[in-house]
Design a protein around this nucleic acid. Structure first.
Lengths: 254, 254
DNA sequence: CGAGAGGTTGACTTGCGTCAATGAACGTGG
DNA sequence: CCACGTTCATTGACGCAAGTCAACCTCTCG
């Protein structure tokens, strides 16, 4: 439970790091997550009674949280970071279906089916709460009100899927990339406005359904046009106005 | 309530046609729809107590069932036909986000938000049950079990959205069209196997994110290769084996 | 009969995928 | 500390799939 030093952290790379027992009563993002609709008393009485604990974990980028078809008996809430849900095509090529951010849930399909629908992989350093299915089921049985929050999470996923189709899978590569950047800029609660941390080329390509090279060319072009400025370690400073302008104006002279 | 003659039907074009009060106890597709998890007694007692009725309606192709942003206080279950959920891009171009079939629900987002997320338009002749929100809410409050079915509907939508991304918005136009045809063939409970009723070119194009011309060329080619045979009024006979073969084999000599 | 909508086809253009070479960043082992 | 391999980003040359533009056809409906 004591924080590991740097050497230890390195050794743990690609292994889950247990952070601590979750204290849902003190949860900083409680408003956004699964139990937001329960009163403090409800929560108290339930959390005291359960036998499977809700634990927090941290994972470095690239860690697989669960596999498509896997049967771990848990759903997850993201406390921090970014997680990609992927599927694999016939050739084994990875396709990013959804990108989840702080406050989103994943693995809820285990409440209904007997395995996960996607493979979940950490994109950044990620902190999650692992919620055993038994807890979910128990809560659902005792406090039907919780279902409303669950529905809201389903609906949010669906909404993102729709946006994905409209914004990230339509039009020219240029527009897709720009829309993705805008999405990332919106999602990331970076300290300062005007900065985004982009994904790897491969990841962006696999989100947008285009090639790595095409993405790279667009980014290079945006840099040349001073819409983006590279700050190091995939962090960029961006000109929001120019970005929005490009997103709407389809054609643009060099 | 008596069936209208042809002239009347014509006059009703683009207007809802009331079919009758729904008798949920006798519903032929009960297993698939929203109330499938309730016992007969539950259903009985609830349906007797409600003051807003569940009505059935029929609509001809092209009818708008509800508008994006609209606030009608109802959700719908599709008893027969095909409904497209669309959104409009900045240029007013229509994009099909989802295609709903018999047993699917639409408008469930009204349980959570204050307006519809899409515009719903009948693609074929459609029969729906209109379920007032008050009924849904009342049922949810009385019979929390119903929530499970609701979750299953959300999850099914999400699943379709994911498939949409993987199968209909990835790869060559050729593959997209073929995957769409296979989806339609699977969904349509046509009397005889081996026949599909395709959508209009515009509709297929707007589902697949490609141009009408491209779709037309692929279909023409499939006809030339005897994979499809036109039977009239957008009904086709298809060679399932050839279709599956083409779907996997990416490149094909002429 | 004419008007309009939707489908088909051809010629042309182009955006983007493919292939390949090069360079930058990083980790590993000698 | 440097040499090396690996992975990822960048850039150019090339070709093709698909978009664009336009003509023409069919079918329906008034």
């Amino acid at each position: 439970m004591s924080p590991p030093n740097k050497a230890t952290a390195k050794a743990l790379c690609n292994h889950p790091e247990w952070i601590g027992r979750a204290d849902c009563r003190q949860c900083g993002i409680l408003q956004q997550v699964l139990f937001s609709d329960l009163s403090e008393d409800d929560l108290e009485s339930i959390l005291d009674g359960i036998f499977e604990p809700i634990d927090q974990y941290g994972y470095p980028p690239g860690t697989v949280l669960y596999h498509q078809g896997g049967q771990d008996n848990a759903a997850f809430t993201i406390r921090d970071g970014l997680v990609k849900l992927v599927r694999y095509g016939p050739d084994g090529d990875e396709r990013i279906i959804r990108l989840l951010k702080r406050g989103d849930s994943m693995g809820l399909e285990r409440l209904l089916g007997d395995s996960y629908e996607h493979t979940a992989i950490a994109v950044r350093n990620v902190k999650v709460c692992r919620i055993p299915l038994t807890v979910m089921q128990r809560l659902n049985a005792d406090k039907p009100r919780l279902y409303r929050t669950l529905m809201e999470h389903w609906s949010a996923c669906l909404f993102q899927a729709d946006d994905h189709i409209m914004l990230l899978l339509s039009g020219t590569v240029r527009n897709r990339v720009i829309n993705l950047i805008r999405w990332l800029a919106k999602v990331e609660a970076t300290e300062e406005k005007g900065k985004v941390e982009l994904l790897s080329g491969k990841e962006m390509a696999s989100m947008l359904g285009v090639t790595i090279e095409s993405v790279s060319r667009v980014i290079a072009d945006l840099k040349r046009k001073k819409v983006l400025r590279y700050l190091g370690s995939s962090l960029y400073e961006y000109d929001a106005n120019a970005l929005n302008a490009y997103a709407t104006a389809e054609r643009k002279a060099s």
